[in-house]
Amino acid sequence: MIVKPKIRISNFNFYYGEAKVIKGVSMDVHPKYVTSIIGPSGCGKSTLLRCLNRMNDLILSARPEGKIEIDGVDINDPALDVVGLRKRVGMVFQKPNPFPKSIFDNVAYGLRVNGVSDKIIIERKVEQSLKGSALWDEVKDRLKDNALNLSGGQQQRLCVARALAVEPEIILMDEPASALDPIATAKIEELIVELKKQYTIVIVTHNMQQAARISDQTAFLMQGELIEYGKTSDIFTKPKKKMTEDYITGRFG
């Protein structure tokens, strides 16, 4: 069976000013898969991820080249509604970045800016999202507390809940567990596997085991080039390229 790709990146380059940091990357991301991007620090993983919801628009010197399509629509088309795109493509950042507001208001934020004002709907959605990110039981009695008082792991799950609340189709995660302890990491990983049922997930990670455990597809990036991309089990057991093998066995990087 041939599934239409959710995201299709074709011959994509990306520049910060003069510096070319993504070089001719082409890859298809399947719907309802977890796709992980691995590679040494500075190889362009975050940059590539941030291109998928045009978060790099904020950086003045940034310039994309080539094509990224989501459901067949070119997202760099000047006529495209970026706000609508970002609503469909949620993002969880490397560093937990809850807003200095209450836990409730953090999750409700996306709904409110998207024009939902019905209190009952908001309350229901907040509860659903917090349950979805496995945080509900820990915070249900203190929804009015400032989100900054949560632990790092809780903050990150709050950011996941915040992203879930607007019901995206795709969730991008940039090293969501890098600042977390093993228990919090395990929770996030469980969560990702759970979320896969409904969402297409692209995750950047430095943790090889994590990529192997949770992802269906793995992309190995080095110095802005896509070295190898395929089924996770293949990449980790029988990589085609020497470089990939060296990286995942820890011989460099």
């Binding site: 706000v83 970045n97 934020y109």
Partner: peptide, 9 residues
């Protein structure tokens, strides 16, 4: 970035 990523203008 956090707000924009949630579909805020």
């Amino acid at each position: 970035e956090g707000s924009l990523a949630l579909g805020a203008t």
